[in-house]
Amino acid sequence: MKVAVVGLGTMGKVHADAWAHIEHAELVGVCDLDRVKAETIAESYDATPYQDLSEMLEQSNVDVIDVCLPTYLHKENVALAAQAGKHVVCEKPLGLNVQDAQDIISVCEDHGVQLFVAQVVRFFPEYAQASAKVKSGGIGKPGVVRLTRGGGFPRAWEDWYADEAKSGRLILDSMIHDFDWLRWTFGDVERVMTRRVSRSDEDRPLEYALVTLRMEDGTIAHVEGTWAHATFHTSFELTGDKGMVVHDSAVSAPLSVSLHHNEGDASKNGVAVPESPLNENPYLRELKHFAHCILTGSEPIVTAYDALKAVEISQAALESAKTGQPVVLAKMGGGVR
């Protein structure tokens, strides 16, 4: 199975590296507007560099295109890959809104290609384990569940994360992970209420949101999303009438390095850098699973429809942030039933 990655930002590099470690996959091409970046990465994996997706589709005889472009570029680039008859892996969020996500699914269906969306949190072992624990009745009837995700404001190519029209910012880009996990674990969402604050200070932009969700099964969820913290962390607290499961990435890291001297930066002396190594990181687990699904035709752990529903929840949360009132998903314009 020949694979090519388009978009070599942070996630594109992670995916390229993962593909290179998958037995039945061969990373044949990498594509980025930045020629030097494409060449450098291509060299380390013995792949061919491209600057243009159409060119890569024509020349590389590839089976799967992995789209790791900014969200607003998903639609046109997935369409190009689908029209060329390639299976598609698309980074989350699938689209900027429900309509875009629906269009992306349709174009893949129309051209008979499979579509996998990288909602990677389902492949993080702590999240997968907790979901299974809840579903097997481990906490009894769920009560209030609390999730936290975030760190600093992301900085990338052309500052596209800062533009809500390109990224959906914090709520669509980051909190979608927890929305998808909630729906996977507790079922569909009844209504969503968002409180959001942001500062667009040039030096230090911030965004922070507290989202309350009522799931159709009655579970109350509280999701904290932050691009206003100094370091990245995730946590969850899942309460029920028969138990509680808690996780905090700041507490569970098994390894921490703290050096007496950081050359050139005295202020960082003694700062502990935690690590949580796994034999296979969640991105590798995810792409291995997608590769298996492509080869065997089996249903993925996360379907394109799941990804669309996650976009729908995020869109509802964004809508609520604007109106200051809860949004009932069934009543949402452009919603999917």
Binding site: K141, G143, V144, M193, G218, T219, I220, T239, D241, P326
Partner: peptide
């Protein structure tokens, strides 16, 4: 805004 319920007892 509040979501309140009786779910534990």
């Amino acid at each position: 805004y509040a979501e309140l319920d009786t779910r534990f007892y």
